[in-house]
Amino acid sequence: MTLVDIPSPRIDTRATAPERAASGHASGPVPYRALLLGGRLLADVTTPTRQQPIADALAAALAARTGHGVDVQTSHDPSATAVADLLASDRDVSRLDALVVVLAPRRDGRTPAETRERLATVLADLTARLTVASALVVVVPSPLASGLTRHELDGFSRTVAEAADALVRVVRLEDGDPSLTPEERAALWAGDIAERTAGALVEPMVRFAPDDPFDEFLRVDAVERIEGRYGVPTAEFQELVELARSTYGTAAAAMSLIDDERTHYFARTGGVAESLPRGKTVCNRVMRLYGGLIVGDAALDPRLSALPEVRTRDVVFYAGYRIEGPDGAPLGALCVFDDAPRVVDDADLAPLRDLVIRAERLLAR
């Protein structure tokens, strides 16, 4: 018997039902962003969104070890399919702080040497897609997750270790106490993954990333679908806006959706207009940023100083965080502002990010 992994799409041999990708979030300043491929091997098969426990647990474990917020996105595909799709696509992964890949061994006709050579090639290709500051972490699943014996996994772990270069972190998972609940086992596995991942992280990419590129036509289509469902503000979104204003103690707050021409403030408080020309709003600028923006005096920020609402000093202090759809398309922003300057820090964005995550979950229903 030999062990092999990618690119066969048959890696995960357990019975599967249609499932959605999951996202996990942990509160904190200046968030790290991680992508988990092959997480379905670590999933709780008893839940509808099976990867939600491991996504939540990994976000919490990384946040606890770094002191930063964390966003974890999963793929609903097996690791082989997900990795092959990533390498074949034009997807921009340069803004990822960590790429975590669960490599699932399986019985195949390849020799260990052939497997090692293939793995080395794939890991090199993945490394080339990331920036030098991104962490690549390879996870070898436990006997319970993989359905293989400890002896079989020992052989596969050696093959992975030989294929990985010095910059790739390799994690071998164990099952722990047999009496653990799925949530407890997810926390155990997430802790082991986070321990290795945290040591490879540097400053979050959000500090350095330029404007985020996106397909404008697809983005507008996503906005129009949302506007069709939420043309009239709902109490839940209005509650988030009111909470944002009270949290920051500002005169105004708003949640916007931005189409091809206008910024529509579909939930607002503090005298905010119902809509404005897109190019004249701070929210339009924030939507293009990876993450959020907070400024103590907008007139001193060259990205904002020429905007009409900044020049009139209606907007002086401003904090905004972009709202994304399930596919990552920027839809608009949640913002708070008033006409008095403040001393601010990036960490002050954390509460706004938490509210945006709640809004995104509402929009995805």
Rank of each mutant, 00 (worst) to 15 (best):
M1Q: 07
G24M: 08
A26C: 13
A34V: 15
L36T: 02
G39W: 11
G39P: 06
V45Q: 04
Q51G: 05
A57L: 09
A60L: 07
V72D: 09
Q73V: 08
H76M: 03
D77T: 12
A84E: 15
L87A: 09
R91N: 13
R95F: 12
D97L: 08
R107W: 11
D108V: 05
P112E: 11
E117C: 04
L119V: 08
L136A: 03
V138L: 15
E152S: 09
E152T: 08
F156Q: 02
T159Y: 11
D177N: 06
R185D: 01
A194Y: 14
E195Q: 13
G199W: 04
V206W: 08
E216K: 01
F217K: 10
V220Q: 05
V220K: 02
V220R: 05
V223N: 04
E242F: 12
M255E: 07
L257C: 09
D259F: 14
D259E: 12
E261S: 02
T263D: 13
R268D: 01
G271K: 07
G279K: 03
V282H: 00
C283R: 00
N284W: 13
R285I: 10
L289W: 12
V295G: 06
V295K: 04
P302G: 00
D314E: 12
V315P: 01
V315W: 03
Y318Q: 06
G325A: 12
L331F: 05
G332H: 08
V343I: 12
V344Q: 06
D346I: 00
D354I: 02
D354C: 01
L363N: 03
